[in-house]
Design a protein around this nucleic acid. Structure first.
Lengths: 210, 210
DNA sequence: GTCTATAATTCGATAGAC
DNA sequence: GTCTATCGAATTATAGAC
């Protein structure tokens, strides 16, 4: 009798994505070579093209793998926040936006802060890399703008737009600088993440109302 | 009688730096090739090495040319702000930080986006490029931290550090997005700049205190 | 100072054996 | 699926004529 073993992703494919995510985060897309990736992943150079087709497709796969759970969680939190036609507080909205992004750090201790740096890197990459990442996050951005409009009806959508944009810019900066000296986010300790989230919400919320 | 003509920089050298600044801003350090630069600058490839020695030294020169006048003006404004041992308000400090950057960059409409993007790039480049830029701005960063420490003595220097870092991140984001739809800064009209500065100060000041 | 020509590497991608 | 070997193009940097 034959044993059926489910292997959704080969070790090689996963290894490539893990190393690529870290190197893309540290050095950017252009600054990362496939030879750097395969060297650290201890796989053959040809394996990258066999599994992904090209360097850009590899980036696309890495973005999708980590962005989709984040967006999914953000939208779920927003849905929950508006249950029963509630109008959530600014603090609650910002927490729903920031917390999933910051908490994803704690999931895998090995990746430490590289996922955070990768997300920050995505927003500063030149085209066409930047758009690949932006498209993955577009759904949650629109949803947050809608909720903010309901929580702060006296402000124009334009005003809320640039304010939300600056909130995301702050989030990305916190992630990108995570772990460095005097940064807000120092470790993957859940208590540190919780503390950073609260301080960031306190820093940004008053400005949203003014 | 001989006319003494002062030519501090050759046309070639200046042309290379102008194009390099724009390409570094758009594509980052690794994403920019010297052939891209000399092609658009319409100079010979060897001229880069003759004038600068290497790609990294070219970047160093571009950073210095851009950063030094900005830092100089910021330090002068800070000096003036503290005349007579005054303790300036948070709003006054932030205005001193934001206004020169927004006004200087807007002086030349063509270079607005480039210089803003370049400043943003400098903060997200991998080492050792990042440190080259950080060192150029270190003096003004330290000075602003000192004044903030006097204005907000109850907060630790670490706290003020990441808050100042987020203020600068917001400034860069406003500059980078300038002119785009629903952006805070829409034009180079002085009244628009004044308005954007005030709104940005109002958005950020409450968070500095909390 | 500016140019041509080229050295010396490195890059992404592919062909084909196993 | 994994490997070796390699292609063609691109890269930074130099040498040397003018």
């Amino acid at each position: 009798m034959q044993e059926i073993v489910v292997t959704p992703t080969s070790d090689t494919k996963e290894q490539i994505m893990n190393v690529a995510e870290r190197l893309f985060a540290e050095r950017g897309f252009a600054g990362t070579t496939l030879r750097n990736v395969v060297s650290e992943a201890k796989v053959n150079l040809a394996a990258v093209h066999y599994h992904f087709g090209s360097k850009e497709e590899l980036f696309r796969a890495v973005v999708a793998r980590f962005a989709r759970p984040v967006v999914e969680q953000e939208l779920a939190l927003l849905e929950k926040l508006q249950a029963g036609d509630q109008v959530p507080s600014v603090e609650a909205i910002l927490t729903a936006l920031l917390k999933p992004c910051l908490e994803i750090l704690v999931q895998n201790k090995d990746t430490l802060l590289t996922r955070a740096q990768f997300m920050g890197r995505c927003r500063t990459e030149p085209e066409p890399i930047k758009s690949i990442a932006a498209n993955e996050f577009a759904a949650s951005t629109e949803a947050f703008l809608d909720v903010l409009q309901r929580a702060l009806p006296s402000q124009s959508r334009s005003e809320l737009y640039w304010k939300l944009d600056l909130v995301i810019a702050a989030l990305i900066r916190v992630q990108t600088e995570a772990g460095q000296q005097e940064a807000l986010l120092q470790s993957t300790d859940p208590k540190d993440i919780q503390n950073a989230t609260e301080q960031l919400v306190k820093f940004l919320s008053p400005g949203m109302r003014s």
